[in-house]
């Protein structure tokens, strides 16, 4: 046991992508069978933002159709939402897996040719763009591409092709960030 613990502080390699994908597919399938819906992520943040704005400025949130859609009909607390609890679980599961694989680390992930500041600025801008894109598309990579992809949803497949298209189109200009 001492031997294994001494060497185990190096991060473990990621698992084979096909088996990770298979496991992810089974999680998605479980969600279909148990809940009748797929996975998601961005909706939880929308709900959280809408709830926060509603707490700070109730009138503003209620008059805005976007926020109102996430506030529900008032019979339950808006944060008692399926996606909110699911994303809470994503944080927990990600942390658990990272801890078990020795991948917990406060670090900025970036290529060698970019400083921390610009990388973080890019991350912020990317996050903001992603949120806007996800709201236009009614879902993100989890809610649309993954879930809708598995259900052969027309919009999801169009969306997925565009995600890869948009990313590949711009990749060359951003190579300094990653390579």
């Amino acid at each position: 046991m001492t031997d294994s613990t001494d060497t185990s502080h190096a991060p473990r390699p990621h698992v084979n992508p096909y088996w990770a994908g298979f496991a992810l597919g089974l999680v998605l399938l479980t969600s279909f069978v148990v809940m009748g819906r797929g996975l998601g992520a961005s909706g939880a943040f929308s709900t959280a933002v809408a709830t926060t704005v509603h707490a700070v400025a109730p009138a503003h949130a209620e008059s805005n159709a976007f926020y109102a859609g996430y506030l529900g009909d008032g019979t339950t607390h808006p944060m008692k939402d399926w996606l909110v609890f699911e994303v809470l679980g994503v944080f927990v599961g990600g942390f658990l897996s990272g801890a078990l694989a020795n991948r917990l680390k406060f670090v900025v992930e970036k290529g060698p040719r970019i400083a921390n500041g610009p990388r973080l600025a890019f991350a912020f801008v990317g996050g903001a763009l992603m949120a806007i894109g996800a709201k236009f598309a009614l879902g993100c990579t989890s809610g649309q591409a993954l879930t809708g992809g598995a259900l052969l949803n027309v919009g999801s497949w169009a969306f997925m092709m565009c995600v890869f298209g948009g990313a590949y189109a711009l990749a060359w200009f951003l190579r300094r960030q990653w390579l």
């Binding site: 763009l129 992603m130 598309a137 990579t141 995600v163 298209g165 990313a167 189109a169 711009l170």
Partner: peptide, 11 residues
């Protein structure tokens, strides 16, 4: 939305 999201992904 997909195009914006893809751009956001690579940025």
């Amino acid at each position: 939305g997909g195009l914006i999201l893809g751009v956001g992904f690579v940025i």
